[in-house]
């Protein structure tokens, strides 16, 4: 018996998220990749918590990760809207300066 299905799935979702972040040019597609990475961390937290049912650290930290992911998405979308108003694009390679040119 090799790996548990949870560990394999978590590794797969993490790698897919990294691939999305590396290959996509649109900011929102990159954000979707980051959400996948958060979810893979959560799968691991919940699975390893389930192996020790008398403790609850894993489940609580999964809740913390979900909360922080929500805050991160809200902030990222605010920044994306601001960028779109300034540059009229969401292509990452065309957004390279912090001040208006």
């Amino acid at each position: 018996m090799g790996n548990s299905i949870y560990i394999l799935l978590s590794a797969f979702v993490f790698s897919a998220g990294v691939a999305l972040v590396l290959t996509r040019q649109n900011v929102i597609a990159v954000l979707i990749g980051v959400e996948l990475v958060f979810n893979s961390a959560n799968i691991n937290f919940v699975y390893f918590n389930a192996l020790y049912p008398e403790r609850l650290d894993g489940q609580f930290f999964a809740l913390v990760v979900i909360t922080i992911a929500a805050a991160e998405t809200a902030l990222a979308l605010a920044i994306i809207l601001k960028l779109y108003r300034t540059y009229h694009t969401t292509n990452l390679d065309e957004i390279s300066s912090l001040v208006e040119e």
Partner: peptide, 25 residues
């Protein structure tokens, strides 16, 4: 994996909140 509350939170916050935000974006 015996984490009912985390599952419900995942449904409510990710599908109800984060995805709506993404589609808005």
């Amino acid at each position: 994996a015996q984490a009912d509350f985390v599952a419900v939170t995942q449904l409510m916050i990710y599908i109800g909140g984060v995805l709506i935000l993404l589609v808005f974006g």
